Amino acid sequence: MTIDWSQQRILILAPHPDDETLGCGGLMSKAKAAGAEVYVQFMTVGDTADSSPKGVSTAAERYGEIKRVAEFYRWDGWEVAFPGDEFHLKLDRLPRFQLANMIERHSALSIAELRPTTLIAPHRTSYNQDHQVTAEAAHTALRPSNAALRHHPALVLAYEEAADQWRLEPAPAPNLLVRLAESHVDDKVAAMRLYGTQIHDHPHTRSELTLRSLAALRGMQGGFSFAEGFHVLRWSA
């Protein structure tokens, strides 16, 4: 399977700011260098309790981080669908119909408006409820239908994060390995550092060593130095 990233318009669904970098940071670096368009649809952002001296990361801080990461990666667009504490870490309270419709058509970065060639969403087996409902809503929005009437991205992937290993039922191993150069991994780590409220010292699922170790493991599984792993949900050749 060979993907010409220079020809791709990529839409990434990120439940929260940093998920797109944790799951696709290397791919974004590789694709943008090749000439791809990259868009990020964040689902929600709000004040977040954390282990910092303050004990909380504010929504304003996290918006600032998004802007710095967007500039770093040269994203072609991004937006937040459901901002505020009413929704943050509570997306499972929203009707699936509302979530799926936002992804499908009710957003400037919806499938209908953007017409991406590649869509990448979180994996359903994450322990996080916002990740789960985002994955399920994307699955609904991407349901099979007449492609002459509804846009169907040719490539649909689910990304992984190290924290997804905390599962009641193990997920299958990724069936697509996107080969990365060391510079792509460096960019992923640099972007996570820009998410200063979210990166942590090792041992943590969002530490630099964790990111580099997972990239090295996925690379080894493909016979090269570094990679990111994905689950192929649809590939229309």
Rank of each mutant, 00 (worst) to 15 (best):
F82M: 06
L119H: 02
G77Q: 08
A141R: 03
V178L: 09
T134S: 03
G25H: 01
P153W: 01
A49S: 08
A49C: 09
Q98D: 15
W235H: 12
A121W: 05
P203W: 11
E136I: 08
V156Y: 02
R212Y: 09
E161T: 12
A173K: 12
R167D: 12
H88E: 10
H200W: 07
V56H: 03
L209A: 13
N146G: 05
R167F: 10
D92E: 15
F82R: 10
S51M: 08
R234P: 09
D19P: 00
F230H: 03
Y63V: 14
H151N: 07
T118Y: 08
R143T: 09
C24T: 05
A33D: 03
R212K: 14
G46E: 08
V178D: 08
M43H: 03
S207E: 11
P15A: 05
P174H: 08
D19C: 02
A191C: 06
R143L: 14
Q132R: 14
E71S: 03
R62V: 02
M28W: 01
H88Y: 14
L155A: 06
Y195E: 02
T48G: 00
S51Y: 13
V185E: 04
A112H: 15
L155M: 11
P53H: 10
C24G: 07
D186C: 01
M192S: 01
D18N: 04
E20S: 02
L99S: 04
W166K: 11
F97G: 04
L89P: 01
M28Y: 03
T125I: 05
M102C: 14
G229Q: 07
R96D: 11
Y39K: 09
